[in-house]
Design a protein around this nucleic acid. Sequence first.
DNA 1: GGTCTTCGGACTCTAATTTG
DNA 2: CAAATTAGAGTCCGAAGACC
Length: 305
Amino acid sequence: MNTARIDLNLLVVFEAIYTEGSVTRASARLNLTQPAISHALGRLRTLFGDPLFTRQGHAMVPTPMARSIVEPIASSLRTLDGTLSRAFSFDPGKAQRILTVGLPGGEESSFLPPLMRRVLEASCIDLVTVSYDRAQLESRLASGKMDLALDILLPHSTQVLHQPLVVEQRVVLARKDHPTVGPGLDLETYLAQQHIHVTSIRQGDSLLDTELSRLGMQRRIRLRCQDYLAACRIVAETDLILTMPAELAPECLAAPYDNQVLPPPVGLPLPGMELYLYWHGSADGDPANRWLREQLAQVLAPMPR
DNA sequence: GGTCTTCGGACTCTAATTTG
DNA sequence: CAAATTAGAGTCCGAAGACC
């Protein structure tokens, strides 16, 4: 028997006739006409090579064959019903899913701890964070290689949906006894320093450097690295300085590094670093994806920017 | 390879007929 | 007489062929 050719609705009809003991009552229960059920019964009889039900007065009495198959069929229908119910009513506490969040740079340490606390408390979802090339944002979301992405405003088609989350403020880190950098840091002194740039991307300017270049200025980047904590330690032990989002990796701003945390110099062209959450339109209705979007929005919303 | 049209099979319906 | 079955018509959908 080729199960791919079987109309599974026939099994629903079979179970309804068996339960109701009547073609007419089965039709009422399934919201179909009585002849439609009768025809379905005819196809069931052909399929099983057995009458399945014989009419005895006003009742349809199951044959031994029908009695032998009703329980496994009813059980299978209950299993299918349960599977579909779980698919349509997402319960984060029970759903076994792995969701992948794309991050362009070393941005994990700011929001990942509070996000993970929420995920662990309320769900069975496993998280994976990955870095990615911004040119591949759309293709990776479309292919399902990433479920969500967190990034600055990027060009994208209408297939990709986005939601603004937060606007980042910047601070400048320098070691406490730095020879030239201190309170009242001006733009000229800032540009004269040697800098660390934290990014997961091997090439390409940051938004700040792009903006500086547009205004005919530039800064000397001596180190590109991927980790804010490592950069923070290097700041503490060298004369390099670091410009970073204020609440990204808050441990960078605290002891034991004891670095100076300074406001950016007046005149430094800091483009609005508004962070956006991206996801593909095909995942918009996915309850697990929606749930994680809500958690991310709630985690990032209270951050003082 | 993609789109459009045609054809045939399967399904459901109403109405009529048959059965117990 | 109530319920099941049959007959015929309409509709839907997938397969196949034509066309670009």
